[in-house]
C-alpha cells in the first residue's frame, strides 16, 4: 500500500541571523500525490535547491510542516530522529549528474541503498535487476558506470532512487546533461515509474523542453511557490 505522497505547508528556511539573514524559503506550499510527477521551476537563486535539501532532510527548515505519507516529518522541528534512515528508506534521489559510485558495477550501484537498508545482498540485487530491466538497462547490469552512456547512467541513477520503493523521489535537474530525445525518455521513465510504484516525484528543472510534459508545475520565486496547471501533453 503506497503512502500518500508529500504535503508541505508554509515551509520556511532562513540562512544566518540578524542583519545578514537571508530568507531562502518564505512560504512554500506543495502537494504531490502518489503516481504524480510535478515540475518545480524557478530562476537561479529562487530557492529551488534549498527546497530540495529541506525535502531531502539534508538541511533543517526554520518553520512550517512537511508530511510524508501519513507521517509528519517536520513541524517546526524534525519529528523523525534518524534522518539518515528517513533518506535511505523513504526518499529517493536522482541527481543532475548521475553520481554513480565508480567502483561498483551497475547492479550494485542500484542495490546499494537496499543493502544499506538491511536487505540481504541476493534480494537487493534481484530487486536491482528487476528495476534495471524495467528501465531497459538490464543488459548493462555487470558494466561499470564509466562504460555507460549518459542516458544509461541516468536510468541507472533512477533505478537506484527507486530500489527501496520510496514514497517520494526528488529529481534535481535529471535531464540537464541530456539531449532532447534522451531527456524525453528520462521523463517518460519517471512518469512510468511514478505510476507503476505509486511514487510522488518532484522534478526540479530549467529544461524548457521537458516543462510541457508536467501536468502540474510549481513555480518558485523569491522563496514562495505558485501552482500552475501544466499541459502534460507529452504523456496524455
Amino acid at each position: 500500500m503506497a503512502e500518500k505522497g508529500i504535503r508541505i505547508r508554509g515551509l520556511k528556511k532562513r540562512y544566518g541571523s540578524g542583519d545578514t539573514a537571508v530568507d531562502a524559503l518564505k512560504k512554500v506550499d506543495m502537494t504531490v500525490t502518489p503516481g504524480e510527477v510535478v515540475g518545480l521551476i524557478g530562476p537561479s537563486g529562487s530557492g529551488k535547491s534549498t527546497l530540495l535539501k529541506c525535502l531531502g532532510a539534508v538541511i533543517e527548515p526554520t518553520g512550517g510542516q512537511m508530511v510524508l505519507g501519513d507521517h509528519i516529518i517536520y513541524d517546526d522541528g524534525w519529528k523523525v530522529k534518524d534522518l539518515r534512515a528517513l533518506r535511505r528508506d523513504r526518499i529517493g534521489f536522482v541527481f543532475q549528474a548521475p553520481y554513480l559510485i565508480p567502483f561498483l558495477d551497475v547492479t550494485d550501484n542500484v542495490a546499494l541503498p537496499a543493502m544499506l537498508a538491511g536487505s540481504p545482498n541476493s534480494d537487493a540485487r534481484k530487486r536491482a535487476m528487476d528495476l534495471l530491466q524495467a528501465l531497459d538497462v538490464g543488459h548493462r547490469a555487470k558494466a561499470m558506470p564509466t562504460q555507460l552512456s549518459g542516458g544509461e547512467q541516468q536510468r541507472v541513477s533512477i533505478a537506484r532512487g527507486l530500489v527501496n520503493r520510496p514514497p517520494v523521489i526528488l529529481a534535481d535537474e535529471p535531464t540537464a546533461p541530456l539531449d532532447s530525445e534522451r531527456a524525453m525518455a528520462v521523463i517518460r521513465i519517471l512518469n512510468n515509474m511514478a505510476q507503476k510504484f505509486e511514487t510522488a516525484i518532484i522534478v526540479v528543472t530549467h529544461d524548457e523542453k521537458i516543462i510541457p510534459t508536467f501536468k502540474r508545475i510549481y513555480h518558485i520565486r523569491d522563496g514562495v511557490t505558485y501552482e500552475e496547471k501544466g499541459k502534460g501533453r507529452a504523456f496524455e
Binding site: 531531502g56 539534508v58 539518515r84 534512515a85 533518506r87 535511505r88 528508506d89 534521489f93 541527481f95 553520481y99 559510485i101 565508480p102 546499494l112 541503498p113 544499506l116 537498508a117 537506484r160
Partner: peptide, 12 residues
C-alpha cells in the same frame, strides 16, 4: 562527491 552521495542515500 561519492562520499556525499553515499551519505545522502543513507550510508552511516
Amino acid at each position: 562527491r561519492e562520499i556525499a552521495v553515499l551519505k545522502l542515500i543513507g550510508t552511516t
